[in-house]
């Protein structure tokens, strides 16, 4: 029982981080029909930018402070906004509606971002500590609950609820949901869908950068390949959850997180294969994904 509670807890925490990466990817693909292969690299860049601020200031202050962790999170978010705006305006905007060019261009962006990270911060792994107040564990029912994992779960839930409220209640949220279904009709109603695209791309990139920053203390390190490693998982989550569905991404991310936790314990080499199998079964039963809209 304790083992299962531990694995479920770990799986949900991992799932929440994957959700931060996949939610943006899902919205970008669902609304804009853009296959963004650079999303993982942007996740990694956010990790480096935020961690740089966290370590630099923390180093001066002499410890892993929650205050500097907060500043690192803020830095990752700001970098996400800036990067999202630049990438959408300079590259993505030129290739709307052309999937082949999207793959080429976003792969190019991915390579450039990865090289930039190597130039600025080198190719070596950078160790990242958890802020002291989030570094402990609490024991309940003979299970140790890591504070940082609890923080990640709480953060993910807040982001998920915030996104769902935004999509349900705000005008921009309604436009995004309508646009995921039928972009053309949204335009015919007098809405500049390109402006909505820019907003969604910036939002998705910012989420990825925040997720990247939070990933560092979770794994204890960051490296230039971390985005690539998680991209495949993120695509699987988007396919399982349904393109453009935030709720679907959350459910699928937790499902994948749980499968990762269980497989890491029982049979680590089979983790990816099990996720692929889940995706194949879901797509066979429901080709639009668990919560994807039928077009």
């Amino acid at each position: 029982m304790e083992l299962h509670l531990t694995l479920i807890f770990n799986g949900i925490a991992t799932g929440m981080l994957i959700f931060l990466l996949a939610a943006g990817l899902s919205l970008i693909f669902g609304l804009m029909s853009v296959l963004n292969f650079a999303h993982g690299a942007l996740f990694m860049f956010g990790a480096y930018a935020g961690t740089y601020v966290y370590i630099l200031l923390g180093g001066w202050a002499g410890g892993w402070s929650i205050f500097y962790f907060g500043l690192g999170l803020l830095a990752a978010a700001v970098i996400g906004i800036i990067l999202g705006f630049i990438v959408e305006r300079t590259t993505i905007r030129q290739v709307y509606g052309d999937h082949l060019r999207q793959i080429l261009v976003t792969t190019g962006v991915m390579l450039v971002v990865m090289e930039l990270v190597r130039v600025f911060w080198g190719s070596n792994v950078i160790q990242v500590g958890r802020p002291q107040v989030l570094d402990g564990r609490t024991e309940m029912m003979n299970v140790l609950f890591g504070h940082y994992r609890l923080f990640i779960i709480a953060f993910g839930v807040i982001v998920l609820v915030g996104m769902l409220i935004m999509l349900k209640k705000s005008k921009i949220g309604l436009v995004v949901r309508a646009g995921v279904e039928n972009k053309e009709m949204v335009q015919a109603l007098g809405i500049n869908v390109r402006r909505v695209f820019t907003f969604v791309f910036i939002f998705g990139t910012t989420l990825a950068c925040i997720g990247g920053f939070l990933w560092g203390p979770y794994q204890g390190q960051i490296n230039p390949n971390m985005g690539m490693d998680l991209m495949l998982i993120a695509f699987i989550v988007v396919a399982i959850g349904g393109m453009g569905s935030v709720g679907g991404s959350a459910v699928a991310a937790i499902l994948v997180g749980l499968s990762e936790a269980y497989m890491a314990y029982f049979f680590p080499p089979g983790a990816l294969a099990v996720n692929m199998l889940i995706m194949a079964v879901v797509l066979l039963v429901k080709p639009t994904g668990l919560l994807g809209a039928t077009r």
Binding site: N182, M185, Q187, V193
Partner: peptide
């Protein structure tokens, strides 16, 4: 979107209702 803003309403052949949005939300969009 500019044409629509000039005051031309369009009802397409297949209605193109947003199926996952309620009637209220379709009007609000």
């Amino acid at each position: 979107y500019v044409t629509a803003k000039k005051g031309i309403g369009y009802v397409p052949e297949d209605q193109d209702i947003f199926g996952t949005l309620t009637v209220e939300e379709n009007m609000r969009v």
